[in-house]
Design a binder for these strands. Sequence first.
DNA 1: AGCGTAAGTAATCGACTGATAACCTGTCAA
DNA 2: TTGACAGGTTATCAGTCGATTACTTACGCT
Lengths: 200, 200
Amino acid sequence: MSADDSQEPTGRMSAADRRSQVLAAAVQAFAAGGYHGTSTDAVARQAGVSQPYVVRMFGTKLELFLEVFDHAVARIHDAFAGVAAQDGFDVATEDGVAQLGEAYTDLVADQALLQVMMHGFSAGSVPEIAAHARTGMARISATLRSTGLDDDSVRDFIAHGMLLNVMLAMRSPEHLGADPDLDALTVCTFGEALPGPAEV
Amino acid sequence: MSADDSQEPTGRMSAADRRSQVLAAAVQAFAAGGYHGTSTDAVARQAGVSQPYVVRMFGTKLELFLEVFDHAVARIHDAFAGVAAQDGFDVATEDGVAQLGEAYTDLVADQALLQVMMHGFSAGSVPEIAAHARTGMARISATLRSTGLDDDSVRDFIAHGMLLNVMLAMRSPEHLGADPDLDALTVCTFGEALPGPAEV
DNA sequence: AGCGTAAGTAATCGACTGATAACCTGTCAA
DNA sequence: TTGACAGGTTATCAGTCGATTACTTACGCT
């Protein structure tokens, strides 16, 4: 858990490659601690590079976070757009909404993206982050709307996603069995898509 | 915005009074910045006392936050319990759910409580906070369940609340008109209960 | 070969944060 | 009056963080 998760050949790399590697590391780091709770040094250690290098690559911790956040939002957005573009997709069928829901619960497998998005959404005290959050939320809701869902359904869908994010953030799935009341909410939120007791 | 919002007689007070005053200030401060993003000094300034006094009163920044969080959850919990205890309350009627919804949107008037709750819910990287978050969420969902709502309705209700929290956190209501896509989601989330352009 | 540039680090700084210690002071009981 | 305790502050510290500077080293090109 200390350094260089996933990437081992820490030898020299092209700037572009290194950049995306650090970005991936930053996703993991920020997913855990949020903007304020994550140091650039934590990101650096996760990526296996030095701390000054991280800030020099992105200019500022804030710019780094915004890039990480935008990346997460884009990936989530793409997941929905991908489903909507599938042959025979029809949101009018109950199967249609189910497919969209699956797209989201699939993202649970890559918890970090959802957590980063969540942290961006709730970091309203940093104006730039709040601005990106509004743009990201607008983009996602527009895409859902464009699949044919009406406004209320879009709202309900996103609302359910937010609950899912929150339940993940508070580690509910990992604590199944500890509290019957929470268990009920957990299973009924995640359905059968409960993430395993896997990684952090 | 610098010191001693609301309370002016900053002269000597009983320990209990001062404690609840600082607690109220801490709610405002943590609501804005979350756990990591708020310093004990910010809380102290908001309360009009010195920073060391704040930490001595609560022992630790973490203990202070947990107390603030529990307080927020308790107030929100009470709001629902209060509605459920009203004469003639019946969740089977569509008026019943509407009443519960109103109870929540009423809380929007005191945004700080919701924001503190939200921050607690997403501060999963601090184990103690996550534990309190799970307990709080369990308590709230149990109370909703006890009004007669079935599990799915409880989930939907809480999900809607989470979306509301998130939209507040990203200052959506204050930015109405800037983005049509976000506007649609905003008005359809808040209904007619849109908070005015009032305080921070 | 050898040099220039891009990749990357070590050293360090100033600001801030949470916490501790030591001190001050108003109020109330005897 | 006086003394003691509760309420509250100033001074200060050690650790952490984001950022800057200056230095080093590997690779590609002629």
